[in-house]
């Protein structure tokens, strides 16, 4: 299928992009890597009047170490994220989740910012951002603002990025030395996650000292399993992890679809959380 007609703008700075959005009005659409947007355009599920291609904005690319955090430009590709030593060393959970996104071709084009701004509830990285307390830098007509992950993801395919704004970067605090594992459960390798569990744990003396748990596809947006995180503190055995993981479905509100109903998703959340934590803790 062929997309409906649109105008095309390719700004080279964030300011130009914001200006183009303002000029484009309500029907303007930001194009990042395009790996979610292109099928939408082809199927004519969306018919923007103008597409603003942000893939040539240098400021939105690359991964830097700010000292206490890792800053990832919104236009950085999944492939670059997975191969980044900074990410692997300090935000290993993000690398683990990003490695599972779609396939090689899509990881070559798709971007961190695009995946976050698209906010698909089945996305692999938004729960990582939520669990790891990432923050989002957003540029708009009034300048820049920073939004914590807890306020960034609003609803199905909806984030705090306004219609006149552009996501510039995502900042992850360092989790150096933490164990990490992403347990993705899908029906075929290229299918979206039915449920996913992201776990990062800091071990101290063989026991879990701190834990961060994010869940994929367990609600309209990413879900943080706070009850599990609390219950895991001090856990040093598989039994203790399993007991904590029993709370994984608390506070979730998953959808039913052709692949899974609510009850099954809740069950998977518990099993996958247990497995992810056990692997992150080096106990499985």
């Amino acid at each position: 299928m062929i997309p409906a007609k649109f105008d095309y703008v390719r700004p080279s700075t964030v300011d130009e992009a914001v200006a183009a959005l303002a000029a484009g009005g309500d029907d303007a659409k930001v194009l990042g890597g395009g790996q979610s947007l292109m099928p939408v355009l082809r199927l004519r599920l969306g018919e923007p009047s103008v597409v603003i291609d942000t893939t040539r904005i240098d400021e939105m690319k690359g991964i830097t170490d700010s000292g206490t955090a890792i800053v990832i430009g919104a236009g950085t590709t999944h492939d670059e994220v997975t191969k980044s030593a900074l990410v692997r060393d300090h935000v290993a959970l993000l690398a683990a989740a990003t490695e599972t996104v779609a396939d090689r071709q899509i990881r070559h084009r798709g971007t961190m910012g695009g995946a976050m701004a698209h906010a698909d509830p089945a996305g692999d990285q938004p729960p990582v951002a939520l669990a790891l307390d990432a923050s989002f830098t957003i540029a708009g007509p009034g300048g820049r603002r920073t939004v914590p992950a807890s306020e960034f993801f609003v609803d199905y395919f909806t984030t705090a990025v306004g219609p006149d704004e552009v996501l510039v970067s995502v900042t992850f605090p360092k989790y150096t030395g933490w164990g990490a594992h992403y347990e993705k459960f899908n029906r075929t390798a290229q299918a979206w996650a039915i449920v996913g569990a992201s776990a990062a744990v800091r071990m101290d003396g063989g026991a879990i000292a701190e834990a961060r748990i994010g869940l994929t596809n367990m609600g309209p947006g990413p879900v943080r399993a706070s009850a599990v995180e609390a219950a895991l503190i001090g856990a040093s055995s598989l039994d203790a992890i399993a007991a904590a993981a029993e709370q994984a479905a608390e506070g979730t509100s998953p959808n039913a679809d052709i692949h899974a109903d609510v009850e099954y998703r809740e069950h998977l959340a518990r099993v996958l959380t247990r497995r992810a934590v056990a692997k992150a803790a080096g106990l499985a």
Partner: peptide, 8 residues
């Protein structure tokens, strides 16, 4: 490698 249907 990229999917040339997913790029303008």
């Amino acid at each position: 490698s990229v999917k040339s249907c997913s790029m303008l």
